[in-house]
């Protein structure tokens, strides 16, 4: 799937850029984006080390397993392939909590820790498991109790009531999360998206 999407994005960019007479911008954007990807990744290293370090303490002290146990009834349904007391459950919960609180620079490192934990349960390296896709869907849905960035932008622009968007945002994000979870559950059993199919596609191409 990513093979097709990625190629399509690039072809569309070049063709449209050519027609629009913006082919120079396309070239510049490609070079600049490649550079800024590394800046982003390097910038993540420090904050990543911070949260990975804290998570290691949380794990060694049994806090992660404790959290996993508390939320097990919900998580078991979403992630039936992950053992209820597996560290992945705890680190996923930490990531979701950070997301809900709007702590995006903590949420990403915690999420990557959760992905690493989930990957330990992956029998086919390189191919996403059902649990990984489900976890990714939760993250792309962007569950947030408080959209702090938006509230501060509205406030900075002189809004009389910058917090009115909290309610509408929460409702919209909750609905999209529910639909996203349902879609992930539905899609994971389709033969097109099976692990075997994904692995086979890899060998053919």
């Amino acid at each position: 799937m990513l093979n097709v999407i990625w190629l399509a994005l690039i072809i569309v960019a070049v063709v449209v850029g050519g027609i629009n007479g913006k082919i120079e911008d396309v070239t510049r954007a490609a070079i600049d984006s490649a550079g800024s990807s590394v800046t982003i990744a390097i910038g993540l290293i420090g904050v990543m080390a911070l949260w990975m370090g804290l998570m290691k303490i949380a794990e060694d002290s049994g806090l992660v397993r404790l959290l996993a146990k508390i939320i097990a009834p919900v998580m078991r349904r979403l992630f039936p392939d992950v053992p209820a007391d597996h560290p992945a459950m705890g680190s996923m919960l930490m990531n979701i909590t950070a997301n809900m609180l709007g702590l995006s620079n903590a949420a990403t490192p915690l999420g990557l820790k959760a992905m690493a934990d989930l990957d330990r349960l992956n029998p086919t390296p390189g191919v996403a498991t059902n649990a990984m896709c489900m976890f990714l869907t939760i993250n792309t849905a962007g569950v947030q109790l408080i959209p702090a960035t938006m509230v501060s932008i509205m406030a900075a622009a002189g809004s009389k009531d910058p917090t009115v968007i909290i309610g509408t945002t929460f409702a919209a994000t909750a609905i999209s999360l529910l639909f996203g979870l349902a879609a992930a559950k539905f899609l994971e059993v389709l033969p097109v998206f099976s692990v075997e199919n994904a692995a086979r596609e890899g060998k053919a191409s």
Partner: peptide
């Protein structure tokens, strides 16, 4: 997220994510 653990085959994650965006 997938890059961090070397996942190249995203399976249904892209479609589920984009569907959630649309919703």
């Amino acid at each position: 997220y997938f890059g961090a653990v070397g996942i190249k085959k995203a399976r249904h994650a892209v479609l589920a994510g984009l569907f959630a965006d649309l919703v």
